[in-house]
Nucleic acid binder design. Structure first.
Lengths: 209, 209
DNA sequence: ACCTGAACACCGTTCAAGT
DNA sequence: ACCTGAACACCGTTCAAGT
């Protein structure tokens, strides 16, 4: 059973007029800009409203509070990310395991590295959030997609594909996050990416039946 | 060159009398309690002072601001963690790689899982922090310790031990964090731990020379 | 249907006064 | 040398009033 997003974090209203949709977009855009430029600790409702060109009151028509705004922002981001990984997983059905691993690592990595400041800002923005539902929904989608992919590999069968898949994703997602946390220079980050692929392939090769 | 902790995050004064030392301990203890019980979003200076049995003003004698308090708390935690990993790495000098990997994974894992609510609270508390110096100091210590350990393995030599070691640590630390983020049930978490060890061993075996 | 912005409660931080 | 707590500035949130 997929848990609903907590009610109090859901947008209060959907835009019914073009003006409202534009306002919402402006708010999201402004939030990202403030987040990247000043960091989550300086993200105030006043600053966001100012940059979006609306009044504070307007923000509160769409979001019940600041957390709700950040929740929605992360939701957007994770939905797009899940879609990318799903598409790539689907494209790799029937490919050898080495190809699968390389595709997933590179897709996820690229998505996170394209705009590192945005990634970093969102990683940090997530802290004060009741984000369990968000993470779980994302994890569930990606889990399903990559596990389905794995079972189509022509060169490997796994006794417990669920656990194997969970281990792969935990490791890959975790490693990427750790690279950000340590703020590794590009050359080292790239080296780690390459080694991570080797590691996952070595793992799958070692345990396949 | 090891960067100093940012000046503005350093305690303002060291305790010179017994009373002051007790006050400092009480503040740290109260911070952890509030953090675990109410989460970082409800951690207020008033609440911490109240629980520590001191006035707000007293807190500001020891910490320049709330961030400084959280910084010091995380510093304590990471110093203790680094020490544990260092000791374990030292104890594994000359052991086979499988034993090394198992020791490091289990030591780090155990340290994080012993008091999961504390770990989770600290992971979350770190967000609003200028914690680069903290992370870097921790990473540097652990890097050094485990790389030295790796080079003593009797059953493997590595062309680029620095990168191999970096990859191992990134993966292990990242995986543990991801297990927390996904809030995996104990059984799955345990399964992932076991698979993570297999993965690291398979990696080292595949690339050794 | 959507937007405004003054008003209120609360939190971080300071500092004059105490022991 | 250490502690107190009222006072101030600022931020999240509301709501009566506008279009």
């Amino acid at each position: 059973m997929v848990p609903d997003a907590p009610k109090h974090l859901t947008p209060r209203k959907k835009p019914r007029q073009a003006r409202a949709a534009a306002t919402l977009d402006a708010i999201f855009e402004a939030t990202l800009q403030v987040l990247v430029a000043e960091g989550p600790e300086h993200l105030t409702t006043t600053r966001v409203a100012e940059r979006a060109g609306v009044s504070v009151g307007t923000m509160y028509q769409y979001f019940p509070h600041k957390q709700g705004l950040l929740y929605a922002l992360n939701e957007r981001y994770l939905l797009a990310l899940a879609e990318r990984v799903e598409a790539q997983a689907l494209a790799c059905h029937g490919a050898p395991i080495a190809k699968m691993v390389e595709s997933i690592v590179k897709t996820y990595w690229a998505a996170k590295m394209e705009r590192p400041e945005v990634t970093r800002a969102l990683y940090r923005s997530v802290v004060e959030l009741d984000n369990d539902a968000l993470i779980e929904a994302f994890a569930r989608r990606v889990d399903t997609a990559t596990e389905a992919m794995l079972t189509t590999a022509p060169d490997a069968k796994f006794a417990d594909p669920r656990t194997v898949n969970l281990t792969l994703l935990t490791t890959i997602f975790g490693a990427v996050r750790n690279v950000f946390e340590r703020d590794l220079p590009a050359s080292e980050a790239h080296a780690v990416q390459h080694q991570l692929i080797l590691m996952c392939v070595a793992y799958l090769t070692a345990i396949k039946s």
